[in-house]
């Protein structure tokens, strides 16, 4: 499987990672090597085998719908790079 620079740009966009052209070129080479390695799985016969998502044996673990203790809002907002007393702040995203 070849990886093209265009594919890398597309994946970088999906992953929300800004990438300059040098990084695109390097990432194209590195991803091609790793994807080339994991291609070996295609040779494994998995006909009739269901995908395994987790090994815990647990299913649909739900708790009772009762409010528990909340994190301290001030402590949480203190970690934000930009916030006021009640909210995280972002650049304007919707024009009116």
């Amino acid at each position: 499987m070849d990886i093209t620079p265009d594919q890398v740009r597309h994946v970088a966009r999906l992953a929300r990672l800004a990438m300059d052209e040098d990084s695109v070129a390097r990432m194209t080479r590195e991803l091609a090597a790793i994807v080339g390695y994991v291609e070996q799985l295609q040779a494994v016969d998995t006909d009739g085998v269901e995908p395994l998502a987790n090994v815990s044996g647990l299913e649909h673990v739900l708790r009772d719908d009762q409010p528990g203790p909340l994190l301290d809002h001030a402590a949480v907002l203190a970690n934000a790079p930009l916030a006021n007393e009640v909210a995280f702040l972002v650049p304007k995203a919707v024009e009116r």
């Binding site: 999906l14 990432m27 994807v35 998995t46």
Partner: peptide, 25 residues
């Protein structure tokens, strides 16, 4: 990047679900 690639449309079956099948084996 690798993880986003193997989960992206068109590649999920070939990589991610394939790996989950091999995991069961």
């Amino acid at each position: 990047m690798l993880g986003t690639y193997v989960l992206s449309a068109g590649y999920l079956d070939a990589y991610y679900l394939k790996a989950q099948r091999v995991r069961r084996l």
